[in-house]
Design a protein around this nucleic acid. Structure first.
Length: 360
DNA sequence: CATTCGTGGTA
DNA sequence: TTACCAAGAAT
């Protein structure tokens, strides 16, 4: 790793911060520096694109304008606020942490690294982001953008896929950060990564700090950062069924409170590969006989580490209340109730297939 | 440290 | 179509 010459650090800070002040995007979480608003934005932005987050963030702030509003919300409401964003443990952890701030910190987001890092869902990046953006403290906020940008500027070859590498970049930021403009400096590194110093084909000729960049000087932009490849994911075949009765009620069940898609609702489903096996399993486990059962579609759900290949069925029964399930909460809902439950995208597609099927 | 945790966009 | 990616944290 090369270091910037000490007499150039000051110029680097000035070039970077001035560029950010001039060129930053207008984003809803930049309206003010309310620590709660900054906090929510940082949680939503974890592994999630800015364009995706914007509408979720604006609705979230309408539903829960203050820490008190969110602390008082119930689980179904917070999951509904997050429906479609992914990584649902984020909103459960945020809810737990916000309640903790209300009860233990008088509703004021703590402003020390030790205290803020104790909050659920607040890791090294988010702690640094809130402390530097909302409170002006000179703490590093190292995300994927920052590692990419600084790997190029400082010619750092450490593998950014390795957890230990983050510490290298945190130390670099501690040496570089502008103590008088911590918010702008940290956001500028990320904004530069998003707008100029992109993963492929960076716009170096538009870069405000290319004079300070080792990779630009040596033509190494495409070689950095170093990042090892991820392994490919496995596939699981599922059969899911929309059980509906003459009154229009459907059966949904709540997923466990931890693990994949925790706490979301879904149509009953099993890891079986045929209509007959689905009937057998549901007769055994749910004490319901599905006689009028037919396929309505195939849905693929791609996760980070897993793929579901779902065969969707519709089953017409006399009374959905025949369905029992010992391990999970269940609900019998009509179309007008359906919107109050948060479902994963694949099960929303199953519902769409059911609706389309009914119109034919 | 490696794996688990979503979703939609893009080359 | 495949692979990678996008303001990471918990386990």
């Amino acid at each position: 790793m090369k270091k910037l010459a000490s007499n150039n650090i000051e110029q680097f800070r000035e070039d970077l911060v001035n560029w950010f002040i001039e060129e930053q995007r207008e984003l809803p979480w930049r309206l003010n520096k309310d620590p709660y608003r900054v906090w929510v934005s940082e949680i939503m932005l974890q592994q999630t694109r800015v364009d995706t987050v914007i509408p979720y963030y604006e609705r979230f702030m309408e539903w829960f304008p203050t820490i008190e509003d969110f602390a008082e919300a119930d689980e179904e409401r917070i999951l509904k606020a997050w429906e479609g964003l992914g990584y649902y443990s984020r909103v459960r952890n945020l809810h737990s942490a916000v309640k903790e701030v209300k009860e233990s910190y008088g509703g004021v987001v703590p402003n020390t690294p030790e205290e803020i890092s104790r909050l659920k869902g607040v890791g090294p990046y988010t702690a640094g982001a809130i402390l530097s953006i909302a409170y002006g403290l000179p703490e590093p906020a190292v995300d994927g953008n920052v590692m990419r940008v600084l790997s190029r500027i400082l010619e750092i070859y450490d593998d950014i896929a390795k957890p230990a590498t983050r510490k290298i970049f945190e130390q670099a930021v501690r040496e570089l950060i502008d103590h008088d403009h911590t918010s702008e400096f940290n956001q500028a590194l990320m904004e530069l990564g998003a707008l100029i110093c992109t993963p492929t084909k960076p716009s170096c000729l538009l870069c405000p700090v290319r004079e300070h960049c080792q990779a630009f000087e040596k033509g190494l932009q495409q070689e950095l950062p170093v990042k090892t490849k991820a392994k490919k994911v496995k596939t699981v075949h599922l059969s899911a069924v929309v059980i509906v009765d003459p009154s229009g009620r459907m059966v949904i069940q709540k997923r466990p409170s931890s693990g994949l898609l925790a706490g979301l609702w879904e149509f009953p489903n099993y890891e079986v590969d045929s209509l007959e096996k689905l009937k057998q399993v549901m007769a055994r486990d749910n004490h319901i006989v599905l006689e009028d059962l037919r396929p309505i579609g195939k849905i693929s759900h791609v996760f980070s580490h897993l793929i579901w290949e779902i065969t969707a069925y519709e089953a017409k029964v006399e009374n959905v209340e025949q369905f029992t399930e010992t391990n999970r909460k269940i609900a019998f809902v009509r179309d007008e109730d359906f919107q109050h439950y948060a479902l994963p995208v694949s099960h929303q597609k199953i519902y769409e297939a059911h609706v389309i099927n009914g119109k034919q």
